[in-house]
Design a binder for these strands. Sequence first.
DNA 1: CTTCAACGACTAGAATTTTCATAGGAACAG
DNA 2: CTGTTCCTATGAAAATTCTAGTCGTTGAAG
Lengths: 225, 225
Amino acid sequence: MKILVVEDEPKLAGFLKRGLEEQSWEVELAYDGQVGKKMASNYRFDVIILDVNLPLLNGYDLARQLRNDGLSTPILFLTALGTIDDKLDGFEAGGDDYLVKPFEFRELIARVKVLAHRSTTREQSSQVLTIADLELNLDEKVARRSGNRIDLTAKEFALLEYLMRNRGRVVSRVDIAEQVWDIRFDTGTNVIDVYINFLRKKVDKDYPNKLIHTVVGMGYIFKEE
Amino acid sequence: MKILVVEDEPKLAGFLKRGLEEQSWEVELAYDGQVGKKMASNYRFDVIILDVNLPLLNGYDLARQLRNDGLSTPILFLTALGTIDDKLDGFEAGGDDYLVKPFEFRELIARVKVLAHRSTTREQSSQVLTIADLELNLDEKVARRSGNRIDLTAKEFALLEYLMRNRGRVVSRVDIAEQVWDIRFDTGTNVIDVYINFLRKKVDKDYPNKLIHTVVGMGYIFKEE
DNA sequence: CTTCAACGACTAGAATTTTCATAGGAACAG
DNA sequence: CTGTTCCTATGAAAATTCTAGTCGTTGAAG
């Protein structure tokens, strides 16, 4: 299950992300209303959690715009404002539920579950492999490192997927050749080396902690540190 | 719209009935859990409002039994108990929302509206798919972009519908061939490319933000950007 | 200490594949 | 028969995949 959290206060955002991920849900964060809108319209989430006070575009207006665009994903508002009129505004804007800060996390979980229950039944949620700050979205066919989008070609994607699925294990060139290239005998090619190099440029180059490591004489291993 | 209220305290029950009827909704009252259950199972309501403390059969057990019987009508719990654990019990029992007494009547109305809206929209199952400024009317078999009518042939329509239903994820040519053309093996055809081209001319050509994107070597993806 | 071989990193550009765009014919409906 | 829809075929353009090389490092032998 995939949840979008739009919350500008970093502390609360992190808290929400961690707490929701403990339910083994995937969580995407947006820190302002405009980014939130873009994410909500481009990808399918099961539930959207919206703070009301957001920079650039407030939660109510964001919800209204999404509803206007025909998005029916359940929306839960989260806010410090606790008066009735605020709540009514939230519902009027197209919200499905409303929770007032401070709240108990377990109640949030329960409400999110209820909201999700409806939408989960119709379509499967998105598939993502995540290791460290790198995630590979199998639906979008796109990788992200620390949130930065990385475009990959088909072969690059296939290779990275194979490495990530075998994280923590050394995979030999022969394994890779068979699984990714369908090569079953030694052709004396060096494609694999070349593509490892391509991946390193795109995935590891700009980041201090490398994820793709060479094990001389053995192959490659994908792991943190 | 029809609402069932199960509440044993006559004063509150009458208050609820009058208030809800002011919204020109039909309200049925039950004064204990067993009668409530009978009514809920025998007639179709849009929303059920359940007090938790009820004679003969308490609200949670009543909800559980209804859910067990396969009833999916939204349930809102109403109770004086306000602790987190009570709320969690309520959601666990199959409730969709939880309101603690005393409450503002307008908030009740708002929450009931949301619950009702969900069940009604769910049934008509959206005759219009909308993404960004493009809408696809499944009844009229017509698309509109920024309000401008776009006529599509049957195949164009089917392809666009498939893309829109899978917005945000890459669909391969094989997927499209199977789902839209019923081709289950590689025939070496290029119909899909041709029709993507047709759609682009009709849907994307005159507009700056494109919706149909190709992902080389993988397929196509429908999304804003 | 020097040399050489093995291995992997990395690059340029050639070869191949994939996609786009268009034209024209077959199939079909009215 | 006529107009529309659907599909095949084709060539150009774009993007990719892969080959063939150079370079650097390491470690062992001479």
